[in-house]
Computed example of a mutant assay.
Amino acid sequence: MKFRAMIRPAFAIAILAAIPSGPVLAVDGYDISAFTSADLDVSGSLSNAEFNTTLEPGLSRKALAKSFRRADLNRNGSIQVNEFLIFRRVIILPKNPLERWFHRADTSIDGAVSFDEFAASFKAKVALVSIRRDFLRADRNESGTVTLLEYSNFRRGLTPPSRLAVFDLADFDGDGLLTVPEFGHAYAQSTSDALILERFVKLDDNRDGVLTTSEWSPGVVR
């Protein structure tokens, strides 16, 4: 398991929590009963096999694969509820690129983008510290989510730059110490665990399994 995969343990739970129980299911006014019926493992997303059950019978393997690729907007190998509704044209993506990004990122279709949703829109070569810097800069009211207006203001350069240091951005739990997974947030998400651990060990002078700011940047006292 990748170290950084640990930062999103509540993502699927959050998606499921947004989906009420009952025979007729709806989120934010959208009927998602077809989605939840197909979600046999109750994971909050549809696998290739689950998604295929929602398509018309008799399609060729090539047509099934093409439909899945078209629906999987974020290319993560599964279909989230917003992608399902977009594929079915229940949600029509606007022409404005900022609005299009927002609707594609808002997998919980609740009108706000969480950090996990925000981060999922970036490629693996981007470090989580950079993503978090952008997210905190966009989240002007510090609500923990980003609205379309906040995102638009951020993209248009109407929000002040973040003054947080890389160490603080990597320190997701805010305890002033970096564990190995948190240290990995400073590297591209595609960086190997072995390389991250190797560099962590070199900095961890007292071998206590965490990094302080003085170990990260010798001479810095906090």
Results as ranks from 00 to 15, higher is better:
77 G>L: 01
138 A>G: 03
117 E>H: 03
27 V>I: 03
125 K>S: 14
47 S>A: 08
42 V>A: 13
80 Q>A: 05
207 R>Q: 10
159 T>A: 11
20 P>L: 15
67 S>P: 01
145 T>E: 15
59 L>E: 02
49 A>N: 02
153 N>K: 03
34 A>T: 06
71 A>E: 13
186 A>Q: 09
38 A>F: 04
153 N>P: 00
115 F>N: 06
85 L>T: 05
156 R>K: 12
69 R>L: 14
67 S>N: 13
207 R>L: 07
165 A>F: 08
82 N>T: 01
53 T>S: 14
59 L>C: 11
68 F>T: 06
117 E>F: 03
26 A>R: 14
150 E>F: 06
130 S>W: 13
162 S>L: 11
93 L>Q: 06
60 S>V: 15
14 A>P: 01
65 A>N: 15
129 V>L: 01
215 E>N: 10
146 V>H: 10
83 E>A: 08
166 V>F: 06
191 T>N: 09
83 E>G: 10
71 A>V: 13
1 M>R: 10
197 L>Y: 07
33 S>F: 04
219 G>C: 08
116 D>R: 02
35 F>I: 01
203 L>V: 09
25 L>W: 00
161 P>I: 01
73 L>G: 11
208 D>Y: 10
165 A>D: 02
85 L>F: 05
94 P>E: 00
113 V>R: 09
115 F>D: 07
109 I>P: 06
20 P>D: 10
124 A>D: 15
121 S>D: 07
193 D>A: 13
26 A>S: 15
90 V>R: 00
96 N>Q: 11
41 D>Y: 09
70 R>F: 11
101 W>N: 04
120 A>C: 10
192 S>K: 05
103 H>K: 04
166 V>K: 10
5 A>M: 04
174 G>I: 04
130 S>E: 15
84 F>C: 07
198 E>H: 14
166 V>N: 08
111 G>D: 05
167 F>I: 05
8 R>H: 12
65 A>H: 15
159 T>S: 11
53 T>D: 08
51 F>Q: 10
21 S>P: 14
162 S>H: 05
71 A>H: 07
139 D>R: 08
128 L>W: 04
71 A>K: 01
173 D>G: 09
91 I>S: 07
39 D>R: 04
17 A>F: 10
105 A>V: 13
123 K>Q: 08
39 D>E: 01
207 R>D: 09
106 D>S: 10
171 D>F: 10
161 P>A: 02
66 K>R: 15
197 L>W: 03
148 L>N: 12
115 F>Y: 15
202 K>I: 03
25 L>R: 03
46 L>H: 09
148 L>I: 08
13 I>Y: 05
205 D>F: 15
68 F>A: 07
118 F>R: 05
26 A>T: 14
191 T>W: 08
143 S>C: 09
55 L>M: 00
210 V>E: 02
219 G>A: 10
147 T>Y: 13
109 I>L: 12
34 A>P: 00
93 L>T: 06
50 E>V: 02
92 I>G: 00
